[in-house]
Nucleic acid binder design. Sequence first.
DNA 1: GCCCATTTGTACGTATGTATG
DNA 2: GCATACATACGTACAAATGGG
Lengths: 80, 80
Amino acid sequence: VIDPHLDTPVYVQLADILRARIRSGELAPRRMIPSIRTLQQEYAVSDRTVKHATQLLRDEGLVHTVQGRGVFVTAQPPPG
Amino acid sequence: VIDPHLDTPVYVQLADILRARIRSGELAPRRMIPSIRTLQQEYAVSDRTVKHATQLLRDEGLVHTVQGRGVFVTAQPPPG
DNA sequence: GCCCATTTGTACGTATGTATG
DNA sequence: GCATACATACGTACAAATGGG
């Protein structure tokens, strides 16, 4: 659950949530994570915030984007 | 109410007021205090005065700043 | 008051893939 | 093959609000 009153920026909180859902196996490798618009509604945040969150995960190598398809969980988690 | 004619500096008076509002529970922990610009209008003082006052509270550990968000009442009041 | 960085939001353009004509 | 529509994503610009110097 996202709490706007926390010190942590909303996009970081969202990234943490998605990271947890991936690590828990709920969002499996090679599978698409919910679309930006879905996440946007699900967590009541703007698309900019969702993009910012997915950008973090992409930088971590946890997910990768396929243009016109969606954001997918990377099969091989990055070492470390 | 702030009185510019008192010996106590205006920014100290404002800090006292905010401190009282926090201790009374009106400004609850984890919640944002009114913005600098709001306080500036509310008490008819300059933004420098407000910043100076919040600086005092920050030094006391009573509040803390979150970049781009605002000044928040610290959840755990400092010991002592 | 100014300018700057950060956060969040909205809007728009663009690229890719799918489905339908 | 082409065009259209719709979905997805990205990127950018712009605006609003925040605190800090």
